[in-house]
């Protein structure tokens, strides 16, 4: 059985043994960030003052070496899963690909502007869902005419209005799942060269998960590359054919999803 699987693998590799178009190239990436208020030492005003006078570095600032030398190349039409335990550097890596975190060493080259889609970052909570859809689309660079044209399909896709007229309520009244659905719908309305998804599929109900999977497949067909960070191994298995396993900011394994996820679940490092 196993040998047969390897044979098909070898075959597919042989079949597309031609130049592919790279979309994301990570070249020995190191990311270090400073954390303010790390909480070491006494937090009193007098100690802060004496530190300033003695010009000592504040112990409340600590450096975290979150990503240590990761290299990989992703190609057009690929869906790449990123797995690893909490705090392994997956989300940091994603933010760096999006260009939000500068690299300390090495470089990340991308085709166009990658878009990060995470459930943690909220849009404007005081505004209605309606306004958020319009603002989100305008911020992504759509023209007002394009926004009018796509508005209804975004709202329909998010399914926010399935249980009444929620789209005209401020976003702060939404449940976390509803907010995440709307955010995904806004970002997925535009074709991105590179779409980065941070746990977005884990939220939302069964029906929405199905729809978003279908949409991700569409986005892939439209010649983009998708990165997916998730702790849901089944979601990774269903959406990605390639998976990168990161631990302690280092790349442990990069290969076909079935193989990498199987090893990851067993805790078997190569």
């Amino acid at each position: 059985m196993a040998d047969a699987a390897i044979d098909t693998l070898k075959e597919t590799t042989a079949v597309d043994n031609q130049a592919r178009v790279p979309t994301v190239v990570a070249d020995d990436v190191h990311i270090i960030y400073k954390v303010h208020g790390a909480g070491a030492g006494k937090g009193s005003a007098t100690s802060a003052l004496s530190r300033m006078i003695t010009r000592k570095k504040s112990p409340a600032i600590r450096e975290v070496h979150a990503v240590r030398g990761i290299s990989f190349t992703a190609y057009k039409g690929e869906a790449v899963g990123l797995i690893g335990s909490n705090g392994s550097g997956k989300s940091t890596m994603l933010a760096a690909i999006a260009g939000l975190l500068p690299t300390a060493r090495g470089a990340i080259y991308t085709n166009g502007q990658p878009s990060l889609l995470g459930v943690n970052a909220a849009l404007m909570n005081d505004l209605t869902g309606e306004r958020n859809v319009v603002l989100g689309c305008l911020a992504m660079g759509m023209s007002p005419a394009q926004v009018r044209e796509r508005y209804q399909s975004i709202v329909d896709f998010s399914g926010i209005n399935e249980k009444g007229d929620f789209i005209s309520l401020p976003m702060r009244t939404y449940s976390s799942g509803m907010g995440a659905r709307l955010r995904f719908s806004i970002a997925a309305a535009k074709t991105h060269d590179v779409l980065l998804i941070d746990e977005a599929l884990a939220t939302g109900d069964q029906g929405f998960q199905q729809r978003s999977k279908a949409r991700i497949n569409e986005l892939r067909k439209e010649a983009g590359t998708v990165f997916l960070v998730s702790h849901d191994n089944n979601a990774i298995r269903e959406t990605c054919e390639r998976t990168i396993w990161i631990e302690h900011g280092e790349l442990i394994m990069d290969g076909h999803t079935d193989e990498v996820v199987r090893r990851y679940e067993k805790g078997e490092r190569p």
Binding site: N17, Q18, V25, A107, D254
Partner: peptide, 19 residues
């Protein structure tokens, strides 16, 4: 495991920067 990162065909052997 198969190296999925490595450039294939005409691009084989290029460094990340060159690619």
């Amino acid at each position: 495991p198969v190296n999925l990162s490595a450039p294939r065909g005409a691009d084989a052997g290029l460094t990340p920067k060159q690619l």
